[in-house]
């Protein structure tokens, strides 16, 4: 009952918090209509120069957008497949060293990416993959977070379903693709969304593994936002926000369920 005191005050406080959270996005959208001279809360002169430059005048920005999109699709597809298979293995099979292996997965998940950057570079260099997109996609596919998430999600499926399927003659793959994955839609949605955002925002990996600036994704360009025309930079920011927002609106109902299922607190 005490939480129902001062409802208007609490509402005003929450609105002001939401405003501060949304402020950078609003600022980017507003400044994408700037004539490019300086950042401002409200641009002194409105212009579509940024949109003309990014969408029509130069193909460089859209090339980076497509680079980002192709990389993200490859990483999300690969990581989803690998995570489902590995999560299934950890969740439903008994084998020696299973707990130790899963503990190692969790340890690797806790490591910052920079820890393995040099060793990854050396391995990829030996494989002759530095300079190609495989250098970005391959390490990202084998994500310990995805394995952990999918194992937790698969663990929530009652054994009775699986036993019934096995009695009907279903093999392991049939059980995975016909029972576990359809029952884990919310977990998969979380995995797809979080992986996409992670891949969409990567900056260090392209800088380290790629040599040709034309191969860089949009995130690398956005990380250098302190240089250049304000209108162009903010238009690129808007462009970068669109796929993530669309994906979020598509999966928002599943996201909370998926994270709750994985028991991440």
């Amino acid at each position: 009952m005490k939480y129902q005191k001062y409802p208007k005050l609490r509402l005003a406080f929450l609105i002001s918090l939401a405003f501060f959270a949304l402020m950078p996005l609003l600022y980017t959208i507003v400044n994408s209509f700037s004539d490019g001279s300086a950042y401002a809360l409200i641009p002194s002169r409105l212009s579509l120069q940024g949109y003309w430059e990014v969408l029509l005048r130069r193909p460089h920005y859209l090339k980076k957008f497509w680079n980002s999109l192709i990389l993200c699709v490859a990483i999300v597809a690969g990581q989803t497949a690998v995570s489902c298979l590995a999560g299934f293995g950890f969740s439903r099979f008994r084998f020696p060293g299973k707990d130790v292996l899963f503990f190692l997965v969790i340890i690797v998940m806790m490591m910052p990416y920079q820890v393995t950057l040099v060793s990854n570079y050396m391995i990829l260099d030996r494989m002759g993959l530095v300079g190609s997109w495989f250098a970005l996609v391959l390490p990202a596919i084998f994500s310990p977070f995805g394995v952990f998430l999918m194992r937790q999600v698969f663990d929530t499926c009652p054994n009775e379903f699986l036993e019934a399927a096995r009695l009907d003659g279903a093999g392991s793959f049939r059980v995975l693709f016909s029972i576990l994955i359809p029952r884990s839609r919310s977990g998969l949605a979380s995995l797809v969304l979080l992986t996409f955002i992670d891949a969409w925002n990567m900056v260090e990996q392209p800088l380290v593994y790629l040599n040709d600036p034309y191969e860089y994704p949009l995130s690398v360009f956005l990380s250098q936002m302190n240089q250049g025309n304000v209108g162009v930079l903010c238009t690129c920011g808007v462009l970068a926000a669109i796929p993530v927002l669309l994906l979020f609106f598509y999966y928002d109902e599943d996201l909370a369920d998926g994270i709750a299922l994985s028991q991440i607190h």
């Binding site: 969408l55 029509l56 005048r57 130069r58 193909p59 859209l62 090339k63 957008f65 497509w66």
Partner: peptide
């Protein structure tokens, strides 16, 4: 965006 990419390449 695909159409814009094609057009921007031509305009460039």
């Amino acid at each position: 965006l695909a159409v814009c990419s094609f057009l921007s390449n031509r305009i460039y």
